[in-house]
Structures are given as structure tokens and as C-alpha cells.
């Protein structure tokens, strides 16, 4: 097998022969092929974004191309009945938008303070034993499919928590809001904890060195120093709540209402989209089909905008300490 000049072992008498060198051209060619493949992979994500934007613009235009539908009434109208009536219908987005905002507000009232306090506790106070329970709990909570939380809202939160408090309908904004809040808590907690942990040790030492208590150090030094990170966590949570679908589809009901009453049903933008799909009456070309895209375009605009701001704020705080 080996050439005659090569001794069989690499022992002390071994003379290193000149092995035939592989052409480096091949390695370079392989690299070029792989790089173009990798660029192809990276383009998939760009393509996804372009695809989403193109699709939403093109198909929403199909909605507004209709004879008696215009953008202004869509953005200001307070009645929505697309997909319910065949002939004449109302297409003002506010009932859906207010449903989304109502539920998001309830979710944030719950998730922001709870998530932040949990983050503070985890980063500043928690002894190892508590952390060992709390961290996995939050991870499990974050991994629970949202449809499960929707089920929880309908079957537990409404009958057991809300029913004793007043006249809550079977499907209501509050239960959905609480469930959305529950799924936002781990998100806020982990992002805010990252931000708090990114605060340099020296700042903590400085505050303790001046004789501050833990509370004073936390609230007066660390939280302000991590503020941009915390704000970004809040923004990402808001975007998540606005885009949350299965919880509201199950727990918030399917009637679009333009009220401030958190006890009644309130269909959200995402809820509307799911309910329309579920009815399987979506046929390309009909207003019902196009309305999905118009609603989705607005939903995308809002969530993408908030996420973008959140990401930029996050990048800035990362730069501050790196």
C-alpha cells in the first residue's frame, strides 16, 4: 500500500517522504460552492421578509380595490362585519383593533410588573436554591404552547377566577388578557434579567461601598442603569401580546366589539384571522379573503414597528456595556 521508500512505521529511522500535495484549487472551489450555498440560506430569511411585505401590500390592495371600500374608513370605522354578511358589510378596523389593545393592556398590567420584579429578584436576590426552582419554572412556562394557555383561560380563569367577581361572559377580554399576560411573564423576566445582569459589577460595588442597602442599590443604581434593556423587554412583550393568536381565538370570543368593557367578548385582529380560516369560507378573490390581508398588514406593521424599536434599544444598551 505504502510506497517502497516509506518505512512502515514512523520510528526513529523514518525519513519523511514528500507526499503528493492536493491541489489547493479544489479546496478553493469547494469553498466557493459552499459560500454560495450559505448565501442562498441567508437569502431565505430576507426572502421571507420581502415575501411577507409583498404579499401583504399586494393582497391588501385587492381589498381596497373593491368599489365601496377605502383606506380611510378602514382605519377610522367603528363597525366590522366582514365575513359575516355576504352582501353589504362594514369594514372599520376599530372593533378588532380595540379588542387587541384591550387584551394587550390587561396582559401588560399583569406581565410587566410581575416580569420585572421576577427579573430583579432573580438577578439581585435569589439564593441558588430558589433560582434552581424559579428558572426552570419560567422556562417551562415559556415553552407551553399558547393553545394550552387559551384552554386554561376558558376552563379555569373565567369560571374560577372571574365568575365570582362579576358578570363575565363565557368568552371575555379579561381572561384572554390574563392568559396572554402569563405567557409574557417569562419573556419579560428573562430579557429584563439579561439587562440587569449586563450592568457592570463595578456599579454595584460602588453603590454598596457608599453604604447603600440592597434595595437602594437595586432601585437607584441598577434598574436605572439597565433601563434601556428593560424598556426593550417591555416593547418586545407588547409586540408578542399584540401578535398572540391562539389564546384570544379560544378565550376572547368571536364577536368584534368596540367598547371598553373588559367583561364581554372581544375579537382581536389575530382572532378574526383565525376564525375566518377556521370557517373555511376563504376563497381567493372574495372580500372576506382580502380582508384577512388588510388586517394582517396592519398587525404586521404594528408588531414589526414595535419589535424594531425594541431591537434598536436593545442593541444600544448592549453597546453601552461592551
Amino acid at each position: 500500500m505504502s510506497s517502497s521508500s516509506v518505512s512502515e512505521t514512523g520510528g526513529p529511522n523514518f525519513v519523511r517522504p514528500n507526499f503528493p500535495v492536493k491541489s489547493s484549487a479544489r479546496s478553493h472551489r469547494n469553498q466557493a460552492i459552499m459560500v454560495s450555498l450559505l448565501i442562498g440560506c441567508a437569502l431565505v430569511t430576507l426572502g421571507t421578509t420581502v415575501g411577507i411585505i409583498y404579499m401583504l401590500i399586494k393582497e391588501s390592495m385587492g381589498f381596497f380595490a373593491g368599489d365601496d371600500i377605502n383606506l380611510w374608513e378602514f382605519l377610522t370605522g367603528t363597525k366590522w362585519s366582514v365575513g359575516r354578511t355576504q352582501g353589504k358589510f362594514d369594514y372599520g378596523i376599530w372593533p378588532l383593533l380595540s379588542g387587541t389593545l384591550r387584551i394587550t393592556a390587561i396582559a401588560m398590567i399583569l406581565a410587566l410588573p410581575l416580569g420585572l420584579v421576577t427579573a430583579i429578584y432573580l438577578s439581585e436576590y435569589a439564593p441558588k436554591s430558589v433560582r434552581a426552582i424559579l428558572k426552570p419554572t419560567l422556562e417551562i412556562l415559556a415553552g407551553i404552547p399558547t393553545v394550552v394557555l387559551g384552554f386554561f383561560a376558558v376552563k379555569f380563569i373565567t369560571p374560577n377566577l372571574l365568575a365570582p367577581l362579576g358578570e363575565f361572559k363565557t368568552f371575555n377580554a379579561t381572561a384572554a388578557g390574563i392568559a396572554v399576560g402569563i405567557l409574557c411573564i417569562p419573556l419579560v423576566a428573562s430579557l429584563a434579567e439579561d439587562a440587569l445582569r449586563a450592568v457592570p459589577r463595578t456599579l454595584r460595588e460602588g453603590a454598596y461601598g457608599l453604604g447603600s442597602t440592597k434595595l437602594e442599590t437595586t432601585l437607584k443604581v441598577i434598574v436605572p442603569a439597565a433601563l434601556s434593556g428593560i424598556i426593550s423587554a417591555f416593547l418586545l412583550a407588547v409586540a408578542r401580546a399584540i401578535g398572540e393568536t391562539m389564546v384570544v381565538a379560544l378565550a376572547a370570543g368571536s364577536s368584534p366589539t368596540f367598547t371598553m368593557d373588559p367583561r364581554g367578548p372581544s375579537q382581536t385582529m389575530t382572532g378574526f384571522i383565525v376564525h375566518t380560516f377556521q370557517s373555511e369560507s376563504v376563497v381567493p378573490g372574495t372580500p372576506g379573503y382580502y380582508s384577512i390581508y388588510a388586517v394582517a398588514a396592519l398587525l404586521f406593521l404594528i408588531t414589526f414597528g414595535i419589535t424594531l424599536i425594541g431591537q434598536i434599544v436593545r442593541m444600544r444598551y448592549r453597546e453601552e456595556y461592551n
Partner: peptide
């Protein structure tokens, strides 16, 4: 290198 198993070990 284009190198066989034995040569490589050596």
C-alpha cells in the same frame, strides 16, 4: 496530502 492510512499513521 493524498495520503494512505498507513502513511498517515507513520
Amino acid at each position: 496530502f493524498k495520503i494512505g492510512k498507513q502513511d498517515l499513521a507513520a
